[in-house]
Amino acid sequence: MGATAPSTGQIDRVIDIALSEDVPFGDLTTGAFVPKPAQAQAQLRAREPGIFSGGQVFTRAMQAVDDRVSVDLDVADGAEFAAGDLLAQLHGPARGILTCERIALNLVQRMCGIATVTAKFVAAVEGTGVRIADTRKTTPGLRVLERYAVRCGGGHNHRFSLSDAVMAKDNHLAALAAEGIGLAEAIRTARARLPHTAHIEVEVDRVEQILPALEGGADTIMVDNFSPDDMVQAVELIAGRALVEASGGVSLETVAGIARTGVDVISVGALTHSARALDLGLDFQVGA
Rank of each mutant, 00 (worst) to 15 (best):
A239Q: 10
R102V: 03
V166I: 14
I210T: 05
I266G: 01
T197K: 15
T118G: 07
T8R: 15
A3K: 05
G248R: 04
L19C: 13
M231L: 11
K120F: 09
C100D: 03
V108H: 02
D230K: 11
R191W: 00
D22S: 14
P6Q: 08
D66L: 07
I266K: 00
A190Y: 10
H196Y: 15
S247P: 00
I181E: 03
G216A: 00
A133T: 10
V75G: 11
L162T: 04
V23F: 10
V223M: 13
A38D: 13
T128S: 11
D219C: 09
G26W: 01
E203R: 06
L87S: 06
A277L: 11
V250A: 05
A119R: 14
P212S: 01
Y148K: 08
A83C: 09
G153Y: 06
A124C: 09
L90Y: 08
H196G: 12
A76P: 12
A190I: 06
A119Q: 09
V255Y: 02
P228C: 06
T118F: 06
A246C: 11
L183Q: 00
G154R: 05
H156T: 12
L73G: 03
A184P: 15
A32C: 03
L98T: 08
A42K: 04
V244D: 01
V232K: 15
D264Q: 13
A165L: 08
T8E: 13
A256P: 07
L142P: 01
G240D: 11
Y148P: 07
G84V: 01
L87E: 04
P195D: 03
I221N: 04
D205H: 12
A175P: 14
R110F: 04
Q41I: 13
V122W: 02
P195Q: 06
L87F: 05
A186H: 10
A32H: 00
Q109N: 10
A174Y: 14
S251A: 12
E146D: 05
D85P: 02
V166C: 10
D264V: 06
S53C: 13
L98F: 01
